[in-house]
Design a binder for these strands. Structure first.
Lengths: 225, 225
DNA sequence: CGGAGTGGCTGC
DNA sequence: GCAGCCACTCCG
């Protein structure tokens, strides 16, 4: 699972040959199908209203454990408020539903013997709401890693309450957000050419109480090798 | 000047941005164009027939003054024979001529306002036998350092007699080298994909008597900042 | 996928 | 603390 908002997709492509064979490249696809190849590119697209400093591009997750990469975890566990207008990390100002946390997020291509090439370029409107399963045979072999993935998935909703709120507000529903941020969100939404900024159909409280509700996807979380 | 053998190039690149802006990285290019980024990498490439313990990767020079870098100079002034079959420091088993000490060696990129990007990747066979001069304006400003460079250059031949001998032998000319070393040299030559191991056109004594002979390059030796 | 360019760990 | 080394990112 991932912290990506509705409509965004993450793809892993394993390099097949050359000096870097076996390495993986990570791409994102914005709701309008634009391919993002790097964190700077993503930042450029979103504008400086979004602080991606806690976003790990490769894994697609928010970094809660201070500065990235092993090193000292001591000291203050990262000041999330520093320089942020809000916790806007990758929470895009597009209309959200409770199903956001069950979105199709990561597709892994080029696994051995897998020739599946899921279409990632077309709009979210034509995508099935399922995690794409490329290889089931990894399940048993990687029980530990698979568990990690599932745990991550289960834990996410707990951290998402205030983000959900932002989504609501950005969508024009919530009342208690600074005007500046709303404008930034709207502007970003327009910039992204994404889903129109319209009203929110579900009530805010319903979503907060059931962040994980909705159809279960039954997908298998592939471990990152 | 430098102790690098024919066909090798040394490059200094000043980091232009980021936290480490201003730092310089040193790269070497083998005769076949392979880029070397560190001393261990160089050692790996050459194999253990070459003892690089006296070679200073950053400056490109042989260290004659005991152990590198200030520190304790007391005690034994470095045992050059320790573990060495010969003084093979960076003397590669490729065909050499007397002009070896007048080879193009160091290129400095990214100097302010210099947009020169000399091609260092292609084979030595297409390179002019000239020291590449990127900026003349440093001449006057760095008279002292420039002198150091020139002195270094002038002194090299005195120290290179036995090295020249190795080159000859490695090239299949000299007689008095242990079989083991010859094999190592040849193997290294093959490994490097460098100049074929062929006969030496000049006689050994001629070169020893005139180590600095041959065309003068007229180049300017850039100081290492 | 390559490779220049930079980040950042590690050893001294 | 800093230099060296190497991994990794990012973009062609």
């Amino acid at each position: 699972m991932s912290a990506l908002p509705h409509g965004w997709k993450r793809e892993e492509v394993v390099r097949q040959s050359g000096l870097s064979a076996g390495k993986t490249d990570v791409y994102y696809y914005s709701p309008d199908g634009k391919k993002i190849r790097s964190k700077p590119q993503l930042a450029r697209l979103l504008g400086d209203a979004f602080d991606l400093s806690a976003f790990d591009f490769r894994t697609g997750r928010i970094i809660y454990s201070a500065v990235r990469k092993s090193k000292r975890q001591k000291g203050s566990p990262f000041d999330f408020a520093r320089g942020m207008r809000l916790d806007t990390s990758l929470v895009l100002p597009i209309r959200q539903t409770a199903s956001i946390f069950k979105q199709p997020v990561t597709v892994i291509r080029n696994r051995p013997e897998s020739k599946t090439k899921t279409d990632l370029k077309h709009g979210v409107q034509e995508q099935p709401r399922q995690v794409v399963v490329l290889e089931k045979r990894l399940q048993g072999l990687r029980a530990c890693d698979s568990n990690e993935e599932e745990i991550e998935c289960m834990e996410l909703p707990r951290n998402m309450n205030e983000k959900s709120e932002l989504m609501m507000v950005a969508a024009g529903v919530g009342p208690e957000l600074a005007t500046e941020s709303v404008l930034q969100s709207i502007s970003a939404a327009l910039h992204l050419n994404a889903v129109p900024v319209t009203g929110q159909s579900s009530s805010r409280t319903a979503i907060q109480k059931n962040p994980g509700s909705g159809k279960e996807d039954g997908g298998i979380f592939l471990p990152v090798l």
